[in-house]
């Protein structure tokens, strides 16, 4: 490597980026070597693809594509009917349309909830862990209060107070999920803070903010990434549960809503209206859990499965 001519400034940046990319790729490769993780990734790719291609796969409903289209001429059609491959609901909604646009709803839900909760959790947790003392005391007592209420019931209460709407489900889930991240990141920060490289940075005279951003945060974040992946699945699961008990607008193209509305027909033999969306919820949660576990094994081989 000595033969490499002295690169320009930009050259240094490019090389450093290349090294980092290679490292990232090698972690990715290792994750994919595990067959169950690979299966999870495949399912996720398929679902996300479906969500992205929704307007291509089906004609979007006007004016709001996230509302189920109503075909009053085809109520309770079984699967295999022309134009309604997976059948229709009791209101004449196409199940396939619900599944495809429901994947968009789920993706939206989980992305928003997870990114918001990770952001809040990381900020709160790292403030508590990094600053310690009083700040830590106060923040963690707040976290304890949130943790002491079962998450589903808490989300239910919030959604019930705010009224049934999809936006409120997002809000309710966000209120529940950030606590976990705050906990995780605080523990990590306290642990990482004790490393000599943090002291080394202090001896150099670097600012606290820099030390946090360069030394503490990057080394604390991996368990959060794992948890976030798992939660991508869990959010949809709980979100579906909330919709199922009627906290989302009726007629929304959402798996939980579909399951809820279709269940009435099960006793009458109309299994398809709730089974297919239910299967999607299951697959979604399963896929993200598989990938999350795979990530955990690679990123932190020491942690045992909980």
């Amino acid at each position: 490597m000595l033969d490499a001519a002295r690169p320009r400034v930009g050259g240094h940046r490019v090389r450093a980026a290349a090294v980092r990319l290679r490292r990232f790729a090698s972690v990715g490769g290792e994750v994919l070597r595990n067959p169950t993780t690979l299966a999870g990734v495949t399912i996720i790719v398929a679902m996300v693809g479906m969500a992205l291609l929704a307007p291509v796969l089906t004609e979007p409903n006007v004016p709001d594509p996230y509302q189920m289209p109503r075909d009053w001429g085809a109520l309770n059609e079984p699967p295999g009917t022309p134009d309604h491959l997976l059948g229709t609901t009791q209101h004449g909604g196409d199940v396939l349309y619900g599944i495809i646009w429901g994947s968009r709803t789920s993706l939206r839900l989980s992305l928003i909830v997870v990114s918001v909760t990770v952001a809040i959790g990381v900020i709160v947790g790292s403030l508590a862990g990094f600053l310690g003392g009083r700040v830590d005391e106060v923040l963690m007592r707040i976290v304890d209060v949130f943790l002491s209420i079962p998450e589903l019931i808490f989300a239910l209460a919030i959604a019930a107070v705010l009224g049934p709407s999809f936006g409120n489900i997002i809000l309710a889930l966000a209120a529940v999920f950030w606590v976990k991240y705050a906990r995780i990141i605080r523990g990590q920060v306290i642990h990482v803070k004790q490393n000599d490289y943090v002291d080394a940075a202090r001896v150099i005279g670097d600012s606290r903010l820099n030390i946090f951003v360069k030394d503490v945060l990057p080394n604390s974040i991996t368990p959060v990434a794992v948890q976030a992946t798992l939660d991508m699945g869990n959010v949809v699961l709980i979100g579906a549960a909330l919709s199922f008990i009627g906290l989302a607008e009726a007629g929304l193209a959402e798996w939980g809503v579909l399951v809820s509305q279709g269940q009435a027909g099960i006793s009458a033999g109309r299994w398809w209206a709730s089974t297919f969306p239910g299967l999607m919820v299951f697959l979604w949660a399963l896929a993200f859990n598989l990938v999350g576990d795979g990530l955990r094994d690679v990123l932190d081989p020491r942690t045992e499965r909980r």
């Binding site: 450093a16 980092r20 490393n195 490289y197 940075a201 360069k214 990057p218 080394n219």
Partner: peptide, 8 residues
């Protein structure tokens, strides 16, 4: 432990 594992 004295070198940040994520820095070049």
């Amino acid at each position: 432990s004295s070198l940040n594992p994520r820095q070049l």
